[in-house]
Simulated scan of single mutants.
Amino acid sequence: MEIKINGKEQELNFGVKFVRLLDKKMPIVMSVKGMGEQPFGMALTRVVPALKTFDTAVLSDVIYLALWGSKPRPSQDDVDAFIDDDKTDIEKLFSDVIDAMSKSNSVKLATKNLKA
């Protein structure tokens, strides 16, 4: 999937690296006796329902993390401004991101099985 940020086409990549970055940014944290809080990844279990309920902060994070391969990579502020822009069809953007994720081999099962 491609989007245009700051006048430049950017490719979103929802592969394994995206999942790792997502797990690092938004891990599910559990308390483990004697070890304190431990991150367990599993961010997709939170992100997919959030996208399906139109959470723009999560959309911004997902887009930013999916831009991991862009050179130069747009900043989080650039992504936020893109989402906030009145010219951005936000409903279509949510739909396109969910659709692109559902086609990525790395996340399609989670996208298919998680409901909002």
Rank of each mutant, 00 (worst) to 15 (best):
K71Y: 06
M35K: 14
F94P: 12
M30K: 15
G15N: 14
D89P: 01
R20V: 10
L93Y: 10
A57G: 12
G34N: 09
Q10T: 09
I28C: 03
K87T: 11
V32D: 09
E91Q: 10
S70T: 07
F14G: 08
I63D: 06
K33Y: 12
S70L: 03
M26F: 12
K24N: 15
T88R: 05
K92W: 02
V19M: 07
D85W: 06
S95W: 06
E11G: 03
L21V: 07
E91V: 07
S70M: 05
L51T: 07
E11I: 07
G15T: 05
V97N: 02
A43R: 00
L51D: 06
L93R: 04
V47N: 01
A43E: 00
D61I: 08
V97Q: 02
V97Y: 02
A81G: 03
D85C: 09
V62T: 13
S31E: 06
R46M: 10
A43W: 01
D96W: 06
D84L: 12
V47Y: 06
K92E: 04
K71R: 12
P72I: 01
V16F: 14
T45I: 06
D78L: 14
M30S: 15
V97W: 01
S70R: 04
D80E: 07
M42N: 15
N13G: 01
G15E: 11
V79W: 01
E37N: 12
L59T: 08
D80V: 05
W68Y: 15
M42P: 04
Q10M: 14
N13R: 06
V19C: 13
T56R: 07
V29C: 01
F82Y: 15
N13W: 02
V62P: 02
D78R: 15
K52L: 09
D61M: 09
K17Q: 13
V16G: 10
W68L: 00
I90S: 04
L44V: 04
Q10Y: 06
S75R: 10
S60W: 01
D61S: 11
D78V: 15
Q76V: 15
A50V: 01
M35A: 13
T56W: 00
V19H: 05
V16T: 13
K92D: 05
F94H: 12
S70V: 04
D80S: 07
S75Q: 11
G34S: 07
Y64R: 08
V97M: 02
K17H: 14
G41C: 04
D23Q: 01
I28Q: 11
P74C: 09
K71M: 08
R20A: 11
V48K: 03
K17T: 14
L93M: 14
V58D: 01
K24W: 09
E91P: 00
Y64N: 14
I28E: 13
L21C: 11
D61F: 06
Q38H: 08
A50T: 03
D55K: 12
I83T: 08
S95H: 12
D78M: 13
A50R: 03
F54W: 04
S60P: 02
